[in-house]
Design a protein around this nucleic acid. Structure first.
Length: 562
RNA sequence: CGGGGCGUAGCGCAGUCUGGUUUAGCGCACCUGCCUUGGGAGCAGGGGGUCGGUGGUUCGAAUCCACUCGCCCCGACCA
């Protein structure tokens, strides 16, 4: 491809609206343009990257026996009503009516439609297993689109769905997908982790996410380098550092106007681990007191799994229900349900005395109060791994893929049943598996860039080599460039020839920005000795080689990625 | 949805607080010519704006007021 013929609008200045590195570089290097909040246009370079990623996705999905199909993005409400998600999903779903007034929505995922298809077509255990996938547009009315291409309202997703006769089959398909995902992300040149994740609104029991470490990510992952435990902090289990059990007798201490753990902690010159943080929430079944240690944070989602949906109590509610102002509440003598973090089971603590301007010291769990013990704190760096006791790390990550065991959550309501060997009717056992190609591209940039621009992994770069004839007015240079261009193309190397009549500096800057892994530089002086330079975008190292050799070297260097 | 910021030429910005000699400006980009060709050159000339929109205040509004739309960031939310 010739640069002069390709639409590559590079920007010298950093767009004011971009924050994430990948966002800035995709805009500057001419890969994408923003159309509206969360809506992006993929320009020719961006398109090529996405196609490279999709090709890898198809190869690996086909390799595990998945079959590609396509599905509509416009869905009648009925299927969504049958699974209940028409009502549970809320504003994130784009809804509309057709001309007859029929409720419709735009597909944010395709469990319902895939299951609908399975329900009509799968009759017998002989039809199973099946795995269907598509690379398709999804639409979600995101509350907050952000970070360029990382969270958008419209995006393509590779989503696959497995249909099995039993749990064993599902396990197998789940593992096949996990394996394929490992190969996909590895081939795309990403650093990533497979972590335990919250099944969330997908339902089902088991779920994993694939996470690419990057500060631009929205998720935090707890990792144990010793035993390999890894989980999204949304469900990561950790053991908070133990404390020395003090032999305090129970006493009430005057703590005027000291309300927060921090205030009382510095007032009593006692570190926060010796405090119990009492948080009143209102659940659907009434008020609940949640207790965590003073140095811990309450994990809302963990609490939701125990008491269901809830909200924090208002200040007035605290006083009405517990009889004392927020800031002085403690777990003793409470009539309401108490959920306490298991960390608090041992030791003696300080907490509110349920008396204005007083705290209680020497509170002994199970003696001064009882509670339901659970893990309700947020895992943080430095906590101990619950499996092996080593210190956990917490890393910021981009979610690039996920796999869910759905079970019968969709097959039962949509009546996707089959007859087993004994003529018994059984629901199909399902799994669903997603990957976002745009996120792979963005994560690749986040993980591979320098001050000059993008450094693409070879496998997903828009081109293999960029040819840089420095002076287009020099006939010999042009001649050499054209010859190299032709010979490389004949060997199957994808080449971008910067044939623009620009100064050398401009070509170098653009080449570095665009990030094609190898640059072939054709300068007037070297050419007189029959020499060109091969430059590695990542290391910036150049080697001078004979022209003839240049073709061989770049061609063979790239062959491994074909 | 709550909090914050921003909206002036294709891009990046100044001007807004304190309304009026600014005919609305600067850098980059763009067009023409000359010159130059190994890290976003130089010189000369040139084109491009209903100052996000609507309404109001005023003799006079990019500038003040009200409403509204859009975009970004933090949070909530997030199959």
């Amino acid at each position: 491809m010739r640069f002069s013929k390709m639409f590559i609008p590079t920007l010298r200045e950093i767009p004011a609206d971009a924050e994430a590195v990948s966002h800035k570089l995709m805009l500057r290097a001419g890969y994408v343009r923003q159309f509206a909040a969360g809506l992006y246009i993929y320009l020719p370079l961006g398109m090529r990257v996405v196609e490279k990623i999709n090709k890898i996705l198809r190869e690996e999905m086909n390799a595990i026996g998945a079959q590609e199909i396509t599905m509509p993005v416009l869905h009648p409400a009925e299927v969504w009503q049958q699974t209940g998600r028409w009502n549970t999903i809320g504003e994130e779903m784009f809804r509309l009516k057709d001309r007859t007034g029929r409720d419709m929505c735009l597909g944010m995922t395709h469990e319902e439609i895939m299951t609908w298809l399975a329900s009509r077509e799968i009759r017998s255990y002989r039809d199973l297993p099946q795995t269907w996938y598509q690379i398709q547009t999804k639409l979600r009315d995101e509350a907050r689109p952000k970070s360029g291409v990382l969270r958008t309202r419209e995006f393509t997703m590779k989503d696959s769905y497995s249909f099995d006769a039993d749990e064993k089959g599902l396990d197998k398909n789940y593992q096949l997908h996990a394996g394929a995902y490992h190969r996909i992300f590895k081939r795309c040149g990403l650093k990533f982790y497979q972590v335990e994740s919250d099944p969330g609104m997908m339902g089902g029991a088991t779920a994993h996410e694939f996470m690419a470490p990057s500060p631009a990510g929205e998720d935090q992952v707890a990792l144990c380098d010793n035993c390999g435990y890894s989980a999204n902090v949304e469900l990561a289990v950790s053991v908070s550092a133990g404390i020395k059990s003090e032999d305090w007798a129970f006493e009430e201490i005057h703590t005027p106007e000291k309300r927060t753990v921090q205030e009382v902690s510095s007032f009593l010159k006692l570190s926060p681990e010796y405090f119990i943080k009492s948080i009143l929430v209102i659940s659907e079944a009434g008020p609940v007191l949640a207790l965590v240690r003073g140095d811990q944070e309450l994990h809302e989602k963990k609490l939701v799994r125990i008491i269901g949906n809830h909200r924090p109590a208002q200040k007035t509610e605290v006083k009405d229900i517990l009889g004392v102002e927020a800031g002085f509440i403690g777990p003793m003598n409470q009539k309401i349900r108490i959920i306490a973090d298991a960390t608090l089971k041992h030791g003696r603590y300080v907490s509110g005395a349920n008396r204005l301007h007083y705290h209680a010291k020497g509170i002994k769990p199970e003696k001064d109060f009882t509670a339901e013990w659970n893990d309700i704190h947020i895992a943080k760096a430095g906590d101990k791994c619950s499996k092996c006791g080593s210190a956990l790390r917490v890393e910021q990550c981009i979610e690039i893929g996920n796999i869910f065991k759905l079970g019968t959550k969709y097959s039962v309501p949509l009546r996707a049943f089959y007859l087993d060997e004994n003529g018994q009717e059984r629901p199909v056992i399902m799994g669903s598996y997603g990957i976002g190609p745009a996120r792979i591209a963005a994560a690749a940039i986040e993980q591979n860039n320098d001050k000059d621009g993008i450094i693409w992994p070879e496998s997903i770069a828009p081109f293999d080599v960029e040819l840089l004839p420095l002076n287009m007015k020099d006939e010999k240079t042009v001649e050499a460039a054209e010859r190299l261009y032709k010979e490389l193309a004949e060997k199957g190397v994808e080449v971008l020839l910067d044939d623009r009549d620009e100064r050398a500096g401009v070509k170098f800057k653009d080449a570095d920005l665009i990030g094609i892994p190898t640059q072939l530089i054709i300068g007037e002086k070297n050419l007189k000795d029959g020499i060109v330079e091969i430059k590695d975008r990542r290391t910036k190292e150049t080697v001078k080689v004979k022209i003839k050799e240049a073709v061989e070297r770049t061609a063979s260097a790239n062959s491994q990625y074909k």
